[in-house]
Design a protein around this nucleic acid. Structure first.
Length: 218
DNA sequence: AAAACGGGGGC
DNA sequence: GCCCCAGTTTT
């Protein structure tokens, strides 16, 4: 499966001074000031494939109108579309949000679940979103594998797959639980600035000496 | 003006 | 597996 050693502590130590903690992902930022699972769920769904700046603007306006599950039912569909418009994919996301209260009532007694397998059944929620909600809203252990985490793990050579779920499962094995909440934050920061999809800036990478791709070949 | 950019879902 | 969804930000 995986025959490389992940120098976990060293990796995180090298990355730490490099992380801009004041610029936490929008969902974590929300969770910091308001642990309402509803708001975190909505913010997380809206943030998929959308930048944090845009998501923040949208949810600040949205939460003045939509404060809880029941108000999500009553808000007119076209008004909801207008409110979330800037995040993109707004038609699809509006449908998903309107569908949310019913799915919640039918399957989970109107309560937002905290398990991955349950969260995934909600409209607009895949594995990445489910893990992020589980962590941000409930403080439960979760590994949030987005495109950055997935790309970097593949680039390191710990896993070779197109399926982010496989990457998540691998990290579950090799990553001590204490690191789970941080792996996404750290690797997203690295992935946005250095370890980019194309033309990674390996010369200025803090992990240059332990990058598995360079150090190990097989 | 064009390319880059964070997932999810239906088929 | 393949395709669609749609805006903002950066180059």
């Amino acid at each position: 499966m995986h025959n490389k050693i992940f120098p976990i502590a060293k990796t995180f130590a090298l990355l730490k001074p490099f992380i801009n903690t004041s610029k936490a992902p929008v969902v974590e930022f929300i969770a910091l000031q308001d642990k309402d699972p509803f708001k975190i769920l909505i913010a997380t769904i809206l943030s998929s494939r959308t930048n944090d700046t845009t998501t923040t603007k949208v949810i600040q306006r949205l939460f003045k109108v939509v404060k809880n599950i029941s108000s999500l039912e009553t808000v007119p569909h076209d008004e909801l579309e207008k409110l979330i418009f800037p995040v993109g994919f707004y038609k699809q996301k509006a449908i998903q949000l309107k569908k949310l209260p019913l799915v919640l009532k039918n399957n989970f007694n109107g309560i937002i679940p905290d398990e991955i397998d349950q969260l995934i059944k909600l409209p607009g929620v895949g594995r990445k979103t489910a893990n992020l909600v589980r962590w941000a809203a409930f403080g439960k252990p979760a590994i949030c594998v987005d495109v950055h985490v997935h790309r970097i793990c593949n680039r390191w050579g710990y896993v070779k797959t197109k399926d982010p779920e496989e990457t998540e499962m691998l990290l579950r094995e090799i990553l001590p639980r204490q690191y789970w909440p941080f792996i996404n934050h750290y690797l997203v920061s690295l992935g946005q600035t250095i370890c980019k999809p194309r033309n990674p800036k390996c010369k200025t990478c803090p992990l240059i000496d332990i990058c598995a791709k360079i150090k190990v070949n097989h």
